[in-house]
């Protein structure tokens, strides 16, 4: 655990957080802090628990039958697994973009406006404004501004993923969780998403799962290395990649296993 100089910058913390799929323990007492306006990369071999960890941060795992948690996840001091927590409200603050882009079979506009509409926003001009802002934030506006009423299914893969990012941004979350958002994209589309992350960092806190070591090194400020459900090493990305404290971390990032 890295010592934080300034606790005020910490937005999300986990304390001895464990996760079980029925009898199988997928996460073992994970403790880490996520700082505001930084990009935290979660890396590790398949099945190491990084995606489970990510999905625990906005309780997307609740849907899975037999799921159980121990320990705490605190969002600005609030235990998100506490009894009084409104999951719907939590997911508005901690939004998620999935590995495979999942636009809804609706128009581009309706996709981006979805989150606002379910919150009850009916004012057309508010919706129009927010859709435009979100698409601009997701660097997609120029490509789609003339065809907002066309189906989102007709966009290219990279555009679809940026649309999903725009859709998540439209609800103005504090944290953006991304589960391998570029793994299904070609290098050019990947580059666009990565550039986008740099822009978004100014306003959002981002946690990203990635299998791509170069990507983690390029885009993230902090890196957490997971192995077999445990958080092995966590620190500033530069330190983790150039001077890892543990041999196992070094072996993984240099490609000796995993």
């Amino acid at each position: 655990m890295r010592k934080r100089e300034n606790m005020d910058n910490i937005l999300l913390t986990t304390r001895d957080f464990s996760f079980y799929y029925g009898p199988v323990q997928a996460l073992k007492a994970v403790t880490l802090d996520i700082e505001k306006f930084r990009i935290t990369a979660l890396i590790g071999p398949s099945g190491c628990g990084k995606s489970t960890f990510l999905r625990s941060l906005n309780r997307m795992n609740d849907i899975i039958p037999g799921a159980r948690v121990e320990g705490k996840v605190m969002l600005e001091g609030m235990d998100i697994y506490g009894k009084d927590v409104d999951v719907v409200d939590l997911r508005r603050r901690v939004s998620m973009v999935f590995q495979k882009s999942n636009p809804f079979p609706k128009s581009i506009f309706d996709n981006v406006a979805y989150g606002l509409r379910i919150q009850g926003e009916k004012n057309r001009s508010v919706l129009i404004q927010r859709v435009e802002e979100s698409l601009k934030d997701a660097a997609l506006w120029d490509e789609v501004k003339d065809r907002l009423d066309q189906s989102a299914m007709d966009l290219s893969g990279g555009q679809q993923q940026r649309l999903c990012i725009a859709r998540a941004l439209a609800v103005r979350p504090e944290i953006l969780l991304m589960d391998e958002p570029a793994s299904a994209l070609d290098p050019i589309a990947t580059q666009k998403v990565e550039e986008l992350l740099f822009q978004l960092k100014k306003d959002y806190t981002i946690v990203i799962v990635t299998h791509n070591m170069q990507q983690a090194a390029r885009v993230s400020d902090d890196t957490a290395f997971f192995y077999m459900g445990e958080l092995v090493e966590f620190g500033q990305t530069q330190q983790v990649f150039t001077d890892p404290k543990l041999k196992r971390t070094e072996d993984y990032i240099t490609g000796r296993f995993g």
Binding site: I63, V88, S95, N102, I118, R167
Partner: peptide, 22 residues
């Protein structure tokens, strides 16, 4: 597809909103 449900839930839709709209 499951992704329609997950996508809506992740945007803060209630289960009923998810079912009704997506």
């Amino acid at each position: 597809p499951r992704s329609y449900r997950e996508g809506a839930l992740a945007l803060g839709a209630t289960p009923w909103q998810t079912i009704r709209t997506n």
